[in-house]
Amino acid sequence: MKKIFFTPGPSQLFHTVSDHLKEGIKNDIFSISHRSIEFKKIYESCDYKLRSFLDIPENYNISFLSSANEIWERIIQNLVINSSSHLVNGAFSKKFYDFAIINKINAKEYYYDKVEYNINDIEEDELVAITLNETSRGIMCDSNKISSIRKKLNDSLIALDCVSGIPSIPFKVSDVDTFYFSVQKCFGLPSGLGVWIYNDRCIEKNKSISPKKITGTYHSLENLHKKSKIFQTPETPNVLAIFLLSRVLDDMMKIGRERIIRETNYKSALLYNTIKNHNLLSEYIKDQEIQSKTVIVSNTKKESEYFIENLKNKNLIIGKGYGSAQNQIRIANFPAHSKESIELLCDELTKL
């Protein structure tokens, strides 16, 4: 049996990626100029499919960058002049806050330790950063909570980190002003591409900021947006990744987003049930309302290597706890993971 990667990202490739790679090589896609009509068609097609698949309204714009980490920096540079607020519930939301501090922004941190966001804490700010799914700790924020934050904050720009959540965890796009993701998790692609979606409010805010501070060079929002309007990027982009994303979007659209969400919920229920009934495992996040559907985190009574190595011997590759976390495992549940592969993993976990 081939290895199956349940690591939180990079993770298992979507099953059609190898065919799309062959198609790209056969048609010389990866040698074409990024200023050519051929590339513009690839960009335009990917843009159209993202809008269709994710229900992105017309007043939102799409730019391609290198990673979600880069997008953090672009958001801080281009959308904030003085202050931002960060709802922190794990390592990645904390890093976004840290980026703001490094950029000399008066950033405020609201820390939530394994509990859901409390909207009573949150006040209006230039930008409020929230996370759809915190990859490091397996905590998610559901659509209703995001909507309630939007209702409270009329003036703030809301930025949503969707890196390990989209398209498997639904939310209403119009509840946020900007959201972003990278492709190596739920989209089942190699790493190296970040997708930044931002609405016209962000464009207007950037116009007011640009005369007052440096907002970047090649990747200023002004430059990114200008190029996106003609389906180009400021620099030579990751043509391979944009092409593959476009093709995988075709595949996911055939499956249907509702089915992807439904199957994600089914598979996560299997995993959590297995953990609950295991003598050596326990849920890291106890509150079912905020348990991640896409990155399942479990405490282990034995060293995590016991589980990691035993499953590796079965060609089932799971992740360890994030950073310095000990006695913890993380299991990805992305669209690339079939129901059968999750059932197999649960069976093998039960034997340990």
Rank of each mutant, 00 (worst) to 15 (best):
F39V: 03
R247M: 09
G9E: 00
F171C: 03
V195M: 09
V183Q: 11
P170G: 00
S66Y: 07
S298Q: 04
D161S: 02
V239F: 07
I71R: 07
M253K: 12
K229V: 03
K108N: 14
H20M: 03
D142H: 14
E116M: 10
S18T: 10
L249V: 11
G321C: 05
E70V: 08
S136I: 05
K145T: 15
V115R: 14
V163H: 14
M140Q: 14
T178Q: 04
S164V: 15
E340R: 12
F231I: 01
N133Q: 13
I37M: 12
L87Q: 08
S282T: 04
V163D: 15
K41P: 00
N206I: 04
N106G: 00
P10R: 12
H219I: 04
S210D: 08
K339I: 13
G188F: 06
K145E: 13
S298F: 01
S168Y: 01
D113G: 00
N327V: 00
I197L: 15
P237A: 01
S147Q: 13
N313T: 02
K302I: 12
V88M: 09
E123P: 02
V183P: 05
C346Q: 03
Y43A: 01
V115T: 15
S182K: 09
M1F: 08
S164R: 10
G321A: 03
E109A: 13
K108V: 13
P211A: 00
